[in-house]
């Protein structure tokens, strides 16, 4: 398929716009020297990814992404940033400068290999578009039918993470504090 054929489909304009937004925001996530900005750029990235999911007929996953990620995970990140008192303003020490060239070479190489292999492997394989959205009841039946066991396992993982998070983050009382508390 030639580029002019490809670009002549309107849906691909939408894709192009979303993709550029995702990449630009993603780039800022890893380069921004302001930690709060980085977290907010992650919101933008994930919003773009959710848009791509809608484009790929996966509306339910898109909403899950928005609710879980943007709604909960990013908030968690902001909490983490605040609690660890990470410098919130401009900060030149956020990156390991000496690692930059190596990291750039490695990630560019990775991008080259990954995109080269995927283009070679899939050529012009077509994907379903916006109109053919996956009904949510199929997903529900799959989750509670064929995949009910992994579903339960994931639930258990979440529970373990909850307990683990509490255990790790709880501050142990110093002996003196413990004594005081015991006295009350």
């Amino acid at each position: 398929m030639s580029f002019s054929d490809w670009i002549s489909q309107p849906v691909n304009w939408v894709f192009l716009g979303l993709a550029l937004a995702v990449l630009a925001a993603g780039f800022r996530v890893v380069t921004s020297q302001n930690v709060v900005h980085a977290a907010l750029f992650l919101v933008a990235t994930l919003a773009g990814v959710a848009g791509l999911f809608v484009l790929l007929s996966a509306e339910f996953v898109a909403w899950v992404l928005v609710l879980v990620y943007i709604g909960a995970v990013v908030v968690l990140f902001l909490f983490g940033i605040m609690i660890t008192r990470a410098p919130t303003g401009q900060d030149v020490g956020l990156d390991n400068r000496r690692a930059r060239p190596v990291a750039a070479v490695v990630s560019l190489g990775l991008f080259g290999v990954l995109s080269w292999t995927s283009v070679r492997a899939f050529q012009d394989t077509a994907v379903a578009g916006v109109g053919e959205r996956t009904p949510t009841d199929i997903l529900g039946e799959a989750l509670l039918g064929r995949f009910v066991f992994p579903f339960e396992v994931v639930g258990f993982v979440l529970l373990a993470a909850l307990i683990g998070g509490i255990t790790l983050a709880r501050r142990d009382l110093t002996p003196k504090e413990e004594e005081e508390r015991g006295a009350v």
Partner: peptide, 17 residues
């Protein structure tokens, strides 16, 4: 940890190649 991660990625790339 990050040096290990870099080594890991490079190793995976070499394998694919």
């Amino acid at each position: 940890v990050q040096q290990y991660a870099a080594g890991f990625v490079v190793g995976a790339l070499v394998l694919v190649l």
